[in-house]
Design a protein around this nucleic acid. Structure first.
Lengths: 210, 210
DNA sequence: GATAGCTCAACGATATATCGTGATCCAACG
DNA sequence: CGTTGGATCACGATATATCGTTGAGCTATC
């Protein structure tokens, strides 16, 4: 992950917000709604729609089977433990995709159940290693496995990634004001934030033709 | 935690950033540096100082023994498991203090070792309950235990908490632009962010007499 | 009395694991 | 052939635990 060295904290601490930003706009899947798939939510009045409603918790943002594919491809390179797999996927997708432990660990368990990986405890960590059967499986399904972390980040426009990093810089500056600033400086920062919030609402309110 | 209902995601997901904001400015401890304590870091040139450098990872932000005191006081009310204790402290301090698992779980272990709490597995969770010895201990040390979550949040100026919530709203609006906006709208948002970043840097650059 | 060093507590990252929710895909039925 | 319902995968929150780093407080020495 290309971390801005100017950031006081690791970008990784920030990726959940901003990768959602990136994912939302990129629309990881076909159109706002799949073909024929009716949107279960409507926001605002008059049935106005806003697209995929990642307004709550969870729900997949990458394709089904992508976690499994990513795990197999990574473990093919070398043995890894679960947290390492999560980190590697995050880094290779430029922070756009950080798979949830909620999908990674059950996937590891299932691959072990299917005999495609073995688990070896090393230094208190559960290292996953591809079995011979696993290697055959990967070879035979390489086309379908694809390169999921590239698919995840490839669909995100560069300007969106730029927006994410810019937002992190703004947050960093704000933290510095909060940390070191006087009450007067904090008041000025407050005004600046009120202004940008208003501006963002104006941008959001701009109608666009369907 | 007073979560803004306008926020698309739980405020809890945001507290790490913004509670640092609050804590930093409140200066959880006496002045930028303790009396006589020289600051180990200097930023910028000419030895210019910026106060406690919460620029990296970790390091205590509440007093020593506060985690232990909070645990004892909470478990005195009713049995709780570790994660519940973390959540309760976070909520009672209005999100200003979310103790790290890195301090909570070792503290629970130590209290068990000292015989002040017992552990009972209930529904897969390790419920901590005060022992008779623990109750005596709490009664005899009530003055020193204080109310740590009130101490944590009480020192934070209201305008700083407001700044935190405002920042979360800005982030939420930005996510919506990222999710639903057109490339043109994203470009306008980018300009707005560049502007507010510049403004924040200006505010930070304002010198103040020592 | 002040300063420096050491110790200890707080913290973030690391590491694992599961459950309930959300969304998509596929199969069956009309 | 289209629609609907169920199953399955991805995800966030939950829950536990530890290790290395950071910072503050206390103690000893000058």
């Amino acid at each position: 992950m290309h971390a801005s060295t100017a950031l006081p904290w690791t970008v990784e601490a920030w990726w959940p917000r901003w990768h959602r930003l990136a994912m939302a706009a990129a629309g990881r899947r076909t159109g706002p709604f799949g073909p024929g798939h009716r949107h279960p939510h409507a926001f605002g009045r008059g049935g106005m729609h806003f697209g995929p409603p990642w307004m709550g918790r969870g729900g997949p943002r990458v394709g089904r089977g992508d976690v499994r594919a990513a795990v197999l491809l990574l473990v093919e390179e070398r043995p890894m433990h679960g947290y390492q797999i999560i980190r590697e996927i995050t880094e290779r997708s430029d922070g756009v995709w950080r798979p949830s432990p909620g999908s990674v660990y059950p996937t590891l368990q299932q691959l072990e159940d299917e005999g495609l990986v073995t688990v070896e405890k090393v230094g208190g960590r559960r290292m996953m290693e591809l079995t011979d059967e696993g290697r055959v499986y990967v070879d035979e399904h390489r086309d379908r496995l694809g390169v999921p972390w590239e698919t995840a980040s490839g669909g995100v426009p560069d300007d969106l990634l730029g927006l994410r990093d810019l937002a992190a810089q703004v947050a960093a500056a704000l933290m510095q004001v909060g940390r070191e600033g006087t009450p007067a400086q904090r008041e000025e920062a407050r005004k600046a934030l009120v202004g940008v919030r208003k501006r963002l609402y104006q941008i959001l309110a701009e109608d666009e033709p369907d």
